[in-house]
Simulated scan of single mutants.
Amino acid sequence: MPGHLIRKPDPCIYSQFLLMQLNQPVTWDNPDVRILSGGVEQYTYDLTADTEYTVEITVHNSSRDKPADGTAVSIRWIEFGAGSQTRHAIADRVANVPIWPGTAIVTVPWRTPATPGHYCIEVELAHPNDGNPTNNLGWNNTQVHAAQSPVDRSIRIFNRYPRDCPPVDEGGGPYLDYRRAIYGWGALGAIGALLYAHVGHEGGMGHSYAVSVLAFYAIAAAAGLVFYRLHNERLRPRAAVARAATGGHADCHRVEVTVDSYEFDDATGKDFHPDTVFAGRTVVWPAHVDPPSFIFQPGEAFRDVTFHTDAPDDPGPPGHFNINVRQGGEPSGGVTLTITRGG
């Protein structure tokens, strides 16, 4: 039976990258990741070097039909910032997740690195029969600072493409062209053979009916492959001209940084409403990142930007700020800063 007709499990976690692709606001203080010490939740990035903590992961299953038994849970730490590419394994676990709204809790010990610094927890799920793998990756990337108005904090943004941009195949790429030729042009050729036979020319090619259909199918598919090859050769010079017009800087090296104060407010069942859960929120105090956008230079591994806010001096609740980073228009990562106030 075709896979898309079979009900499948869907293990998932709060995934900032999927939500950003859907143009939804996110927080990097992941609601499905907690850091514990002696059973007490800790501020994720107010941790002590070379100290053992417990990482607690909540794994969900959005399927109402199939439990997600045997879900692989990979927990890693990466250097604090946006877009860091170097992963260090903490542990791999297996979770049996019941159908929605059931969850599974995974806990692993983690000894923080001996070198003081700030680190991000990355959780990735995998299941051999996953119905939706796009919601399997989540980060927990936060910092806490005491307010000293004005507040200036450095945020490191890593270059996802420190060398050249990944190649982009014009017209959809060879795999898509292959499918178009085989399933599109070839199918049209087979239909043409059927019509040819229908009007009384079954023996027009000197072969059996089945061989005639296969011959038309193969000829049409081959013609489709030749067409896409020639078509893409014409497109490549145009793409080169477009890159030259932008000064030689490819889009994949352009970085854009935004700031908001969105806080995730989960709800289940009838209480869940997207307009409420994902309601955007502007910054609680005047805040910005300098620079808000830039272009990585060739070979540049990372760049530090500065977050600035004018926190009120009087006592009051803390302020939460999400710094969201896109590189080449794609989500690259982010940081949630919590600025506490006296009182």
Results as ranks from 00 to 15, higher is better:
Arg326Gln: 04
Gly117Thr: 12
Ala222Ile: 05
Asp266Cys: 02
Gly172Ala: 08
Gly333Asp: 02
Met20Lys: 06
Pro317Gln: 11
His60Ser: 03
Asn129Lys: 11
Val33Arg: 02
Gly102Met: 11
Ala89Tyr: 02
Thr276Glu: 13
Thr276Gln: 14
Val26Cys: 04
Val283Asn: 09
Thr268Phe: 13
Arg303Pro: 06
Ile182His: 09
Lys8Asp: 03
Glu124Arg: 15
Val226Cys: 03
Asp251Trp: 10
Ala218Ser: 13
Gly247Val: 04
Pro162Tyr: 09
Gln24Glu: 13
Asp290His: 06
Asp271Ile: 00
Ile191Ala: 15
Thr282Asp: 15
Gly184Glu: 07
Thr54Ser: 13
Gln85Arg: 15
Ile6Asn: 12
Arg87Ile: 02
Phe278Val: 03
Gly224Asn: 03
Asn30Asp: 12
Ala245Lys: 13
Asp46Tyr: 06
Phe264Pro: 00
Thr340Arg: 15
Leu195Phe: 11
Phe296Arg: 09
Pro166Thr: 03
Val289Asn: 07
Thr336Leu: 07
Phe321Gly: 05
Arg34Trp: 12
Pro312Asp: 09
Asn30His: 10
Ser332Glu: 01
Glu122Asp: 14
Phe158Val: 00
Gly328Pro: 06
His273Ile: 01
Ile155Thr: 01
Arg326Met: 04
Tyr178Phe: 14
Arg281His: 14
Arg254Ser: 09
Thr115Cys: 00
Gly247Glu: 08
Val305Trp: 08
Gln21Cys: 05
Gly3Phe: 11
Ala181Lys: 07
Ile295Arg: 14
Thr340Asp: 10
Thr115Asn: 05
Gly70Ala: 09
Asp152Glu: 15
Tyr178Leu: 15
Thr115Gly: 01
Leu36Gln: 05
Trp139Gly: 00
Pro67His: 02
Cys252Tyr: 06
Phe272Arg: 05
Arg303Leu: 10
Pro274Ser: 08
Gly184Ile: 02
Phe17His: 08
Met20Leu: 15
Pro167Thr: 12
Val325Gly: 05
Tyr262Glu: 04
Pro237Asp: 11
His207Pro: 00
His145Trp: 09
Pro312Lys: 05
Asn96Ser: 15
Glu202Gly: 09
Val241Ala: 15
Ala197Thr: 07
His88Asp: 01
Ser212Asn: 14
Val283Ile: 07
Lys270Pro: 06
Pro237Val: 08
Leu225Cys: 02
Phe278Gly: 02
Met1Tyr: 10
Ser154Met: 07
Val97Ala: 09
Gly38Ala: 06
Ser84Asp: 08
Leu18Val: 05
Cys165Arg: 05
Leu230Cys: 05
Arg64Lys: 12
Glu52Ala: 13
Gly70Asp: 06
Asp32Met: 02
Ala147Arg: 06
Gln21Asp: 14
Val168Leu: 13
Arg180Asn: 14
Glu52Ile: 04
Ile121Gln: 03
Val335Phe: 05
Asp265Cys: 05
Pro25Asp: 00
Pro31Ala: 01
Arg254Phe: 13
Met20Thr: 03
Ile57Gly: 07
Ser15Gln: 00
Gly3Asp: 14
Thr48Tyr: 03
Gly334Trp: 02
Gly248Pro: 07
Val94Gly: 05
Gly81Gln: 07
Pro25Ser: 01
Gly224Met: 05
Asn232Phe: 00
Arg238Asn: 08
Gly70Trp: 07
Gly184Tyr: 06
Asp290Tyr: 04
Leu176Phe: 13
Thr142Gln: 11
Thr44Val: 10
Trp100Ser: 12
Arg179Gly: 03
Val199Ser: 06
Gly184Ser: 06
Arg238Lys: 12
